[in-house]
């Protein structure tokens, strides 16, 4: 297979994700764009499994691991980890968004300021 195809797909998805983060006003839509970015990274990791041999140098394989195993497939493992992280992130992110919604009755990203003194003053 021509491995450049999934690579390019991943790159384009990443670009779309960045575009979405910077363009969307609604916080939930921003989270959706972030999911796109994470998926793009996952895709690239998995594709790398195919096209590159990942070598864990200096790591001692567990003694009970089967000797002479096939290709390690670290890319897939890392993709799994990323999926778990994404899930955790969405959970916490949505909790924040809902809390913000309680305070502001809207989840527009524009109004979030990085210095919080005026937040408190403005109420």
């Amino acid at each position: 297979m021509h491995v450049v195809i999934p690579y390019v797909v991943g790159a384009l998805l990443f670009g779309l994700g960045v575009y979405g983060v910077l363009r969307r006003r609604n916080a939930i839509l921003v989270l959706m764009a972030v999911e796109l970015m994470l998926n793009a990274v996952n895709l690239i990791l998995v594709t790398a499994d195919v096209s590159l041999r990942s070598a864990l140098t200096g790591v001692v394989v567990e003694s009970w691991a089967r000797p002479g195993a096939a290709t390690p497939g670290s890319g897939g493992v890392l993709a799994l980890f990323v999926i778990v992280l994404a899930a955790a992130e969405v959970g916490v992110g949505l909790a924040i968004i809902l809390q913000y919604y309680r305070m502001r009755k809207a989840v527009v990203v524009d109004e979030v300021r990085l210095d919080d003194d005026e937040e408190r003053v403005a109420g």
Partner: peptide, 14 residues
Amino acid sequence: AHRLPLPAAAVAVC
């Protein structure tokens, strides 16, 4: 620059 709102900060970082 430190008092940018969040979207502008995101643009800057990206």
